[in-house]
Amino acid sequence: MSDNPNPVIYVQENEIKDEEDVLMSSRYSLGEDELDPFDEEEIFDLVRNITDPEHPLTLEQLNVVRVENINIDIKKSYIRLYFTPTVPHCSMANLIGLSIKEKLARSLPKRFKVDVIVTPGSHSSESSGKYIYTIVNYY
């Protein structure tokens, strides 16, 4: 039996999926020399669609990851992402953390140091330090 058989479902923000919308969206500049810097939303786009290990729902729908809980410091090349398990005793928390970590490791350039951390106060064994994943030099 899963730890939380009945999680609350949250409304999804609009994600750009369609090819045409991508070109129309202001998030993608058109000039050849214009620079699109990394931002929180881009990191969020990478992790929002990861499927929860227990439900046919995404981490976004379960509010495990939120764009507000991502910080990015371009100058220091540092990203910090907090994730929130749906219940404090969730045994899947480390699997979720690892999934996020792996997805980011595969998708981000290596100049970034990334910390994937369980949101303070959201998990019963957070103090054990088991749920902090740091990605450095992962190639």
Partner: peptide
Amino acid sequence: IIPCLDDKKRIVRKQASNCRN
């Protein structure tokens, strides 16, 4: 394709991460 992950255009990065994954 690792260098593409750090491309200056977001749209290329999006495709690169998709491809690499």
